[in-house]
Amino acid sequence: MNDDHAAERRQELHGYIIGLVSAILLSAIPFAGVMLGLLSPAALIWVIAVAGLVQVIVHFRFFLHIDLSRSHRDDLQLILFSLLIVVLMVGGTLWVLTNQRHMMG
């Protein structure tokens, strides 16, 4: 194994370790918050939402190696387009069905 290779390997290993440590923290915070009842329910909802979103980004960045570099543009574009479809479908479903529940309820 040449030096370049070894440096790349070390860099990737660091990435996985950073990913693991931050993911553990980002999971532990909302679990501890809810199990120990540390904050008011309204504040906890925000903690769960933010920690969850950040953890998803951490996983994509450090475990799936998706970032903004040119070599990952195709993967990133595919993911962003899929997210657009998800937002339309999930958003539309929630909009229509909660409306319906209010009108019929």
């Binding site: 290779h5 790349e8 390997r9 290993l13 996985y16 553990i24």
Partner: peptide, 28 residues
Amino acid sequence: LGSAAWETVALLLSSFTCGLATLAMRYD
């Protein structure tokens, strides 16, 4: 929630070891 927390730990660690497996395969 205790059980859900342990499930989270197991799955997260497995994601990490899966990463180590790909490193062992590609570099070593």
